[in-house]
Simulated scan of single mutants.
Amino acid sequence: MANIHGNILTPGGWIHGAVTFNERVAGISGSQADPQGNADDYILPGFIDLHVHGGAGKDVMEGGDAIHRIAAIHARHGTTSLLATTMTAPPEDIDVALAAIGKAVHARGKNEARVLGAHLEGPYINAGKLGAQPNYARAATLAEVKRLEALAPLRVITVAPEIAGHLGLVRELANEGMRVQIGHTLGSYEDGVAALDHGATGFTHLFNAMSGLHHREPGMVGAALAHAQFAELIPDLLHVHPGAIKTALRAIPRLYCVTDSTAATGMPDGEYMLGRHTVHKCMGGVRLPDGTLAGSTLTLDQALRNLVGLGLDLADASARVSTHAADYLGLEDRGRIAPGAWSDFVVLDRDLKLKAVYIEGDRCDLNDA
């Protein structure tokens, strides 16, 4: 049994005291206190990233052991669990990626974030709104999705609801227990509302690769802002203007943050692979040769700092890189520091720099490459 001491963010508020734990939290001792009243470290729930394409020079679509390298680089930045995210690609490429993800779900390595399953970002998207996705978009069938689900747990699936047959599929997938997100879409406000009525529960990288807000044509962004309880957003301050982030924060109660990170995360400037695309990292951004943003190099510790920089208090920012994502997946034992929950913590100094990461009770070596 181990313990750590500091300002602990619990579901009931800040506790100045200690967490006692093994792989799960055994107990929390101390008293409620404003962390501004002392100089001790912050202890927050481990970060949860539901949209990860790569890192450390590796891409999820490579299959093999790439996912382990990716899980390790993100763990060093405070991510304690994640969804490995696929690209729109030929069926054989997706099969390779999902087979590797399926194995990784049951085999967390030393200093690695827990892989909770897959986020299938396509191929069931609109070919007219690919963003950085390769042009292998196609319509979905329930039979194909079930075949893919046999390779790896599909925790989230992105769908363009305006494609013929997809609205009915949204309801079928929701009935199967999958979280269906609206994304890479040219759909209208009405398409978005209909998809939510049929069981869709979120929006993929809000504002990016979807029809925008206009006062006479609210678009998919308007549907999200008017009706969503959950949506993911990339807060790297490149994908979305700070003003738009603040708008979404006011409109969507459980807006949560993702990195949409690529193989370039944690790597020097240069060329990297994103699925079948070659992308270029330069000056903190990742782009296709034509300048289109192609994922990010964001990590969730930086996302937390960005949110605080936008004016969120630390508890709210923490929820948006952890608790809301856990709630979106229906995980009551992650994304919070409470007795019985997994011992997933990050320890931050007063400047919000990482000092320690614990994943299911194991302390991560932040210097491990």
Rank of each mutant, 00 (worst) to 15 (best):
G6T: 04
H16A: 08
H16L: 02
F21G: 06
D34E: 14
N38F: 03
N38C: 10
G46T: 07
G54Q: 02
G57C: 00
R69D: 12
H74L: 07
R76F: 01
G78Q: 07
T79V: 15
M87K: 10
D93C: 12
V96N: 09
V105G: 03
G109R: 12
N111E: 11
Y124I: 14
N126H: 14
P134Y: 09
Y136R: 06
R138Y: 11
T141R: 09
A143D: 15
E149T: 00
I157Y: 08
I163E: 06
G165C: 07
L167F: 00
G168K: 12
L186M: 13
V193R: 02
H198K: 12
G199L: 10
G202E: 06
H214G: 03
H215A: 04
P218T: 11
A228P: 03
P242F: 06
A244N: 02
A248E: 12
L249C: 09
Y256Q: 14
V258R: 11
G266V: 06
P268E: 08
R276P: 06
P289I: 01
A294I: 00
G295S: 11
T297Q: 08
L300E: 03
V321T: 11
D327T: 11
D327E: 15
Y328P: 04
G330S: 03
R336V: 08
F345G: 01
L354Q: 02
K355H: 06
K355A: 04
V357H: 14
D362W: 13
